[in-house]
Design a protein around this nucleic acid. Structure first.
Lengths: 341, 341
DNA sequence: CTGTTAGCGCCTTCAC
DNA sequence: GTGAAGGCGCTAACAG
């Protein structure tokens, strides 16, 4: 009893065969209305529930898909995941979420775990880890398991991706600072082996150059996306002989750290120094001194990633096309960068 | 090729039978060292990987466990999940994370989804939804699927729980405000059908009474754990004839909203009004005006929840005991409540 | 339309 | 120690 009913039980009850029950349950056309109705009714009566494990074994599909992110406790990744869920749940998929915490061993471990879970696909944002070892990815490809990158991608042939135009996001942000009259703009970067950070750097640089400002490499510092790291790095910037009058940060968290340091020194924002972050984390809006930031429409990103996955599954790899979707970021101008001249 | 090797392939290769291969792979004692070694070697050579789906079908265990939370984009729940992962990954489990977004239909839907995924257990923090319908829970119990509540529990017999002492957390926080000289302390509450909020309310009330202050029910307002809700509610409080001189909030987010409103009115924190939040979200520490809050050691909570689950699984329900772990919260005193008299 | 048969990959008695 | 056989629950040919 108690939910362990199988199609055989139903078959026995009705003096028919399990295959017929299966057909009735699956809306197979070759089945009489009468029997279908009968089966459906008894199934309900007996509290029948399909055993997905058996189905998975049979079909080779688990209807589980894995999502790997650096961490889940940022609004950005949480929203992406929500977007993925919204798209995939209605199709009967489950989402297994794994975190890498930017550690290579966890990244590899997660992939293997998901493989064990027999996932039908993996959607991931690669970690900060140096993962030169593409082995895990190759393993996926060899097994024909769809792999799709979002946000933090890697160029691997055969792998689709959904990203935003980081170059544009950075360019717009920097341009905005220039328009507000800032002349010496620093950039808090991050590991530029990751394309997102490389492109933000390039966008920043281009905006500087395009607008006739002096590009000073010493104003670009790589740091980590943590509040205290941002603070530390800003200390260095402010101690320079010619300190910057604005900072474009590739992360909201480092931007926050920067603000802390600047305020501690009694400098005013945005009057003395302008600040822009990246990702539009909720706190940027909530701060008393709200922070200008670049929105990446993460929910949208998640939805599209899921759609790309569904396309690949439905194409059954017949068409082995890479698809690269690039979303457009939006600058959210707030107090930290708005000088009312 | 390509990872589709089965034990039959290995068996054929070695001219033995699949049963033997299985035994070798599973360290069954009745097997000669020689054959085991041989099997292990060829398995490695052929890139054999166990098909967990088949195993799951056979054993009835999926090694998936479901975690249901209201949302993942708060540090609190994210940390709990991390704790759970740390405990469960080494044991070979996967964690499927679901969010209810405090909607009843999603809560029920999630449970069913996890049931479909054949999870070996569900660890959950119930949503704000009124879920009077205990049906879904009963379904789990009937199926003998371990269910464990953390943080937001419901009293259901046979179900273990891991929570913190919300009463104490609230009591300590309120007591601290009193010690700092605040006399008229308001409480931003939340749906008190949820035990955590009920207990925080009771702890607050008791501290007021124990310390000879006047308990004024009109200073207690139920609101939602959102920044703008906190702001809205604080407006009401400050507009009262006898406004409060301190606010103990059952959520860090509402506390943040309260601070926004207070500052907009030109009142000073903590001089004019003291504020305490609940959960010790990272931003409470990062704000320029850091917020006093109650830490709930979420990672620990996650670990213990996982441990309780493992115990239940290992006991195989022989001992059908409920276990109720209650952790002790810790008050983190920061600027928002510290008056240097 | 429905029954029969077989197999997904694995493990576990039962013999030998 | 190892082989043979059966079954976990389901679906998909192949008959009829």
């Amino acid at each position: 009893m108690s939910g362990k009913t199988t199609i055989y039980d139903i078959a026995k009850e009705l003096n028919i065969t399990a295959a017929t029950v299966s057909r009735a349950l699956n809306n197979n056309p070759k089945i009489s209305k009468a029997t279908r109705k009968l089966v459906l009714e008894t199934a309900a009566k007996m509290n029948y529930e399909q055993n997905k494990l058996a189905l998975a074994l049979k079909s080779g599909k688990s209807y589980n898909i894995g999502v790997i992110v650096p961490r889940i406790d940022s609004n950005f990744f949480a929203s992406i995941i929500r977007g993925i869920e919204e798209e995939l749940y209605p199709k009967g998929y489950h989402v297994i979420i794994c975190q890498t915490h930017d550690q290579e061993d966890l990244e590899i471990g997660n992939i293997n775990s998901l493989l064990n879970a027999q996932v039908d696909g993996i959607l991931m944002s690669i970690s900060n880890a140096k993962l030169e070892d593409n082995q895990s990815f190759q393993k996926l490809l060899k097994k024909n398991i769809p792999l799709i990158f979002f946000d933090r991608k890697k160029d691997i042939k055969g792998v689709s991706s959904v990203t935003i135009d980081d170059f544009k996001g950075a360019y717009d942000a920097t341009k905005h600072l220039i328009d507000q009259g800032y002349k010496r703009i620093a950039h808090l970067s991050n590991d530029r082996l990751l394309l997102i950070f490389k492109n933000r750097y390039l966008g920043y640089k281009q905006a500087i150059i395009d607008n006739g400002l002096e590009f000073d490499e010493s104003l670009v510092i790589e740091t980590q996306s943590k509040v205290h790291e941002g603070k530390k790095t800003t200390k260095i910037l402010l101690d320079m002989e010619r300190p910057p009058d604005a900072i474009f940060s590739s992360s909201d968290f480092t931007a926050l750290g920067a603000i802390q340091e600047i305020k501690e020194r009694g400098l005013r924002i945005p009057e003395d120094i302008g600040i822009i972050g990246f990702s539009n984390e909720p706190f940027t809006k909530f701060m008393e001194l709200s922070i200008t930031s670049v929105d990446q429409s993460p929910t949208e990103m998640g939805r599209i990633t899921a759609q790309v996955f569904l396309e690949e599954v439905n194409n059954g790899k017949k068409i082995k096309s890479e698809k690269h979707v690039v979303l457009s970021p939006e600058l959210m101008v707030r107090k930290s960068s708005r000088r009312e001249n």
